[in-house]
């Protein structure tokens, strides 16, 4: 037996064994997925065909497969390119989905914190357009149920415009928001680089955090746990 025939026979045996092993390997998403397994089997199948053709030719049995051997060889490289591209795309898609899921989870966490915080938080623009307000801020500003963007009432809009125009500010005492006499708020405001609304004007948006200074609050300690009778004027 010549060296060439020996190499061809070796290739055929190994490739056939690889085909059987791969076919018996259970597909898994984090390992060899179905999208990888079956194209890989086809690729190995093409190489088996080439080796079989060579073995039959070397053994002097037949050369009938020889003309088809070229087709198998021509198909192999594009098939490998397809396998790699599809696998890479699938992994990138999975990463993007994981990132989106994580972002949504973080967004929900942030929103739950913002909605339950005892301070009022508002995203407002010059002119009194409110892109977002948490539960506490909606209560203070007299805004309707969450449906943004919304235009604040004239008096509140004037206050918001004044604060937006003065941003960035931190912890200033502010008396306004059409509050009853004696109610003061500690207000912080900072510019936002993006907009939470679809109304545009993102460069004029301000993130405003306001909490009552409670300077004249006389509520009892038991009432402090009530949102409506806490620091915000009722």
């Amino acid at each position: 037996m010549s060296a060439v025939a020996l190499f061809d026979a070796t290739a055929l045996v190994f490739l056939a064994a690889a085909f059987v092993l791969l076919a018996a390997t259970p597909p898994r998403d984090d390992g060899i997925s179905r999208g990888l397994k079956y194209p890989l089997l086809i690729g190995i199948g093409l190489l088996i065909f080439v080796s079989l053709s060579n073995v039959l030719e070397q053994a002097g049995i037949t050369q009938v497969l020889d003309e088809y051997e070229d087709y198998a060889e021509v198909l192999f490289v594009p098939l490998v390119a397809y396998i790699l591209y599809s696998r890479s795309s699938a992994e990138q898609l999975r990463l993007a989905e994981d990132a989106e899921r994580e972002m949504r989870r973080e967004h929900e966490l942030l929103m739950s914190v913002v909605e339950t915080t005892p301070a009022g938080i508002v995203v407002a623009e010059t002119g009194g357009t409110v892109s977002f307000a948490n539960d506490e801020a909606r209560h203070v500003l007299g805004l309707p149920a969450p449906s943004f963007p919304v235009q604040a009432s004239e008096a509140v809009a004037a206050d918001l415009t004044a604060i937006v125009a003065s941003a960035p500010v931190r912890g200033i005492r502010y008396r306004g928001f059409a509050a009853p006499e004696g109610a003061w708020y500690a207000v912080s405001a900072t510019p936002l680089s993006g907009s939470l609304s679809d109304t545009g004007g993102s460069w004029s948006s301000r993130w405003i955090v306001a909490r009552a200074s409670c300077s004249k609050r006389t509520a009892s300690s038991s009432a402090r746990t009530s949102r409506t009778s806490g620091c915000w004027p009722t």
């Binding site: 290739a11 490739l15 064994a17 690889a18 092993l21």
Partner: peptide
């Protein structure tokens, strides 16, 4: 070079077999 070509076929078979065996074992 013809011998080298067929040797490369044997090497391909051995390497693919190694990869398939490794995948099979880890699965």
């Amino acid at each position: 070079l013809n011998t080298a070509e067929h040797l490369s076929h044997a090497v391909v078979g051995a390497l693919f077999f190694g990869g398939a065996l490794s995948m099979f074992r880890s699965a």
